[in-house]
Each structure stands twice: as C-alpha cells, then as structure tokens.
Design a protein around this nucleic acid. Structure first.
Lengths: 153, 153
DNA sequence: ATAGTTAGTCAGATAGGCTGACTATATTGA
DNA sequence: TCAATATAGTCAGCCTATCTGACTAACTAT
C-alpha cells in the first residue's frame, strides 16, 4: 500500500459517480446470477437485444435504431444470440430485404429469469433501505432522466 | 418503421435501466462539454485515473487496485494521459521498482473543469426537478449502493 | 545469500463498439 | 414504366477498453 491515499481536495461524489456505482454493482451481480442459472453465454451487451424485441419479431434495423447501435453491431449481437439459441432470424414475409428477429423458447425462459432475478434483487434492496424510499428513488431516477434529456443546448 | 413497436408484456423499467439511462446520458453530455472546452483527448475510461490520483503521486499498482483494473490496463491509460500531458510519471524516490503518477498543470486544469462542469450540470438539474428532491436522490443512491454491497451471498 | 514477494512491462487475446463500401430489394415520381 | 433514390442487411477492417500469462527488476525477510 501507498503512503496514505489522501485523496484529492473534495473528492466530491459527483452525481455521475453516484449513479455509476450502484449500476455497475447491480448489473455485475445480476449477470453473475444469470450465469449461475445456466445462462452463462449472455453478456450485458446482449440485453439491448432482449430489451427491445417485440413479440411479432423485430427487424434488425429497427432494433439497431431504437437501441442506438449501428446495424452492424446489432447484427453481431443477434448472430451470437442465434448461435446460442436465444433468438431465431426469419425472413420477413412482406419485405424480402428484411429479416425478423424472434425469441426462441430458450430466449423466453431467459427473459423471464432475468426479470425475476431483477425483481427479486430489487425486493431484497427494498427490505434493506425501505420500500417507500426505493419507490421514491425509482420515480426520482425517471424524473432525472427526463430532466437530463430536456436540458438545453 | 416496423408495424408497431408493441413492446413486450410489462417491459418493466428495471432498477438497472433506471440507473443506466441517466448515467449514460449524463456522462455523454459531460464528456461532450469537456471536448468542447479543449479536452477532447480525454475519454470516459480515463476518469478512473483522475478519480484516484493522490496529490503526492500514486503508484500504478495502487491506482490499478483501487479502481479495480489490472496493472496493465492502468499502465495503458496512464501512458495515454502522459502522452497528452495530463500526468507525468516519475521515479519513486524510495522504491526503485516503482513509479509515481502525478497530475501536470494541464491535468489540474482538466480536473477543475470537469468538476465545475459536473456541478454546473447538477445545478441545472436541481432547478428542473427541485433541489431537495435531487439532494434526496443523492442520499438514496448512496444508500442503495451501500445496500447492494452488503447484500448476502 | 537466497527465496519469495512486489512493481511494472511485453505480447497477445477478446468484447463491443465504429466507419466505409457493397448488394439486393423497395419505393417513388416523371 | 423505368430510372433515381432510399432502405435492409453484409463484408471487411479499425479502435478502445479490458483481460491473461509470462517475464524482469528490485525489494524484503530469513
């Protein structure tokens, strides 16, 4: 160890840091749990695919756009998930250029498990810090996000 | 556009999502502002270096450990920052194996600017969503982080 | 005087993005 | 009706942020 980690004057916890810390800890934990439940192939980056997949099947381009990635990046993620049987890629019935990405059975099981783990975790946290407080936190976070989005300039 | 982005049943905003969204938006904005102020070389990943640098100079290994990166990764970040004159790397006076990473003048200027931009941004957000609410949010986030850390298993 | 530990380096891998150039198919407007 | 343009997706290649493993130099405790 070094002398004394006499940190910088007012190493103030910025709002960014306050958001980042729990976020990273939470997702690390969540994906570790998923890995332990047999979904070890899924990495955090893949969640954007699940997050926006619509039940009728989504187009690659739409998925890419809504999640703010390029088509190429999305194709890469989808290919991986298809290889591991979480999604299938089918021809679009009405547009021969397009493909539709659909959840497989395994994909559905995974999504259910992820949501379940997430809400179980959140429940435990609610017990620790208080359900009301957690609920207020949720609301405040949503409001904050809204506020950042609508910031001028 | 696709048929209708009829999203999945209860595409519930998980706590993770609620943390992620404002975090990403905030840091994107902050680093864009830094780039606009002439600090375009600094990328978000570099902030871990600044975050833990102590005024007497920190050892690479200590920086790596406290920020949860490998020595190699930290060396890579520090080298980049040194190349762009944000830090200098000097021999450790008491241990000839070791090096000490120190902020340059430019490094100090950057840190000040980052902190200033961060608090200005936070101030604007306070005006939008209410200062008290924002303060409560800060506290709640810190508590949440604590709670996640001390979760069993 | 070593044996073991610690600080940092070198080489190479992987994941998660990106841009640019391209093909195939659709749409639109003269 | 067809040429021009737009859209869906692919191929190739790049960059960044990590990691692991193997190594050298130097320090520390017997």
């Amino acid at each position: 160890m070094s002398p004394s980690p006499s940190s910088f004057p007012e190493q103030a916890r910025t709002l960014g840091a306050l958001l980042r810390l729990p976020y990273h800890r939470l997702s690390k934990r969540l994906y570790a749990e998923m890995a332990a439940s047999g979904f070890g192939e899924i990495r955090p980056s893949h969640s954007v695919v699940f997050r926006h997949l619509s039940p009728e099947g989504s187009r690659l381009t739409d998925l890419a756009e809504v999640s703010g990635l390029t088509k190429q990046s999305m194709a890469y993620l989808v290919e991986y998930l298809a290889k591991h049987d979480y999604v299938t890629v089918a021809a679009d019935p009405v547009d021969r250029r397009a493909k539709r990405v659909l959840l497989t059975k395994r994909g559905h099981v995974f999504m259910k498990a992820l949501l379940a783990a997430s809400s179980r975790l959140e429940d435990e946290l609610g017990k620790k810090i208080g359900r009301t407080k957690l609920q207020n936190l949720r609301t405040a976070l949503a409001d904050l996000d809204e506020a950042i989005m609508t910031l001028p300039k």
